[in-house]
């Protein structure tokens, strides 16, 4: 597997949805053991998956490899796990990450443990794509449940926020022999989230030639010396926007996208914290027990004497998600909240 250099400014820019579609198509062409299975993934005249990522794939690969299922998450997950145990490389789809709770037994008790229980004789090479994130859909269609799975040894957890890494990581995940949960934010698929993301361009350069980005590696999205910010999904873009504003005040933020939450790329983050002496963590998952707590604990254990101020976390408040936009935006980490946390961290 080769690792591409950081994306340069090139002519071809894709949205995350386009990049994911391209990754899946390439992997399906590369290996006939790769197949899609889920709700509404290939129905003629249908949606191409809940967010259109699969549009056009059935025409190329047919219904043997794009398998529509009942609304039956336990069966979808079970079918994917069982097929993976037999050497296939399934990409199951449940539409919304909120529905992962329908198949927690399959994911936590079966997929995560089969390799260990069999003493390494079996593996579960599958990638479960999980759309997350608040988008005025309320309490059961907007959660960011990635932290639940960061707690499960045997799973790998990826969070992608731009098209370049989405494609490179999805290709790596498909070829990985372990079960990977692949979290994507609904507002980042196309350009709809642009306004909320601080008016930033959500397309990214995606090279024509094949490339992979490794699981377990973070990227520095913006270099700085004053404070380290680790953030995913919408919180990443709001952090970048806040960093732009703070740069005018002389605060130079180093913004890191961890990309993989399990296993976590500690080296990149520890190195940054040792340089800046300050850490702010921002995620849309709720605060208590969120992955930011785990990261804060690790930094406290390993980098405490490098810290010049207490670690700050910005996360969704510990309530279910409301629908009314004015309430919803109160719950999730806003650019203003992230900016305030950075300022507070830099005061100490």
């Amino acid at each position: 597997m080769t690792v591409a250099a950081a994306p340069a400014n090139g002519e071809r820019r894709l949205t995350i949805a386009e990049a994911l579609r391209e990754a899946i198509a390439e992997e399906m062409r590369h290996d006939d053991k790769v197949f899609l299975i889920g709700e509404d993934v290939g129905v003629p005249g249908g949606f191409g998956g809940a967010f259109g990522v699969y549009l056009g794939l059935t025409e190329e690969f047919g219904h043997d490899r794009i398998i529509d299922t009942p609304i039956s998450e336990k069966a979808i997950a079970g079918a994917a796990i069982g097929a993976a145990l037999m050497g296939m490389r399934p990409i199951p789809d449940l539409q919304y990450a909120d529905f992962l709770f329908e198949c927690m037994d399959e994911l936590v008790n079966q997929a995560a443990k089969m390799r260990y229980m069999s003493n390494g004789k079996l593996s579960v090479p599958m990638v479960l794509r999980c759309p997350v994130g608040t988008a005025n859909r309320g309490a059961q269609h907007g959660q960011c449940p990635e932290s639940y799975f960061v707690h499960v040894p045997g799973l790998k957890v990826v969070c992608v926020s731009d098209a370049y890494h989405a494609k490179g990581l999805l290709k790596s995940a498909v070829r990985d022999d372990d079960p990977v949960l692949f979290f994507e934010h609904k507002l980042l698929y196309g350009s709809k989230g642009r306004e909320q993301a601080g008016g930033m361009d959500l397309t990214a350069h995606v090279p024509e030639e094949e490339y992979f980005f490794p699981i377990g590696k973070a990227v520095v999205k913006r270099e700085g010396t004053s404070v380290t910010i680790v953030a995913t999904h919408m919180s990443l873009y709001r952090s970048l926007a806040a960093a732009e504003e703070l740069a005018r005040d002389g605060i130079q933020c180093e913004v890191i996208d961890p990309l993989t939450l399990l296993p976590f790329d500690e080296d990149t983050i520890f190195a940054s914290v040792r340089k800046t002496g300050r850490l702010v963590i921002a995620h849309e998952d709720t605060l208590t027990g969120g992955w930011g707590a785990e990261l804060a604990a690790r930094v406290a254990e390993e980098c405490l004497y490098s810290l010049q101020a207490p670690i700050r976390r910005v996360a969704s408040h510990d309530v279910p998600l409301p629908v009314a936009p004015v309430m919803e935006q109160t719950v999730v980490p806003s650019q203003a909240r992230i900016k305030a946390a950075i300022q507070r961290c830099c005061e100490g």
Binding site: F35, I37, D64, R65, I67, K74, A75, A77, G78, A79, A80, I81, G82, A83, A84, L85, M86, G87, M88, P90, C103, E106, Q110
Partner: peptide, 13 residues
């Protein structure tokens, strides 16, 4: 549920 995946793999292969 896991058994359906074994059956599906045999069918696909």
């Amino acid at each position: 549920t896991v058994v359906t995946g074994l059956g599906l793999a045999f069918k696909l292969m």
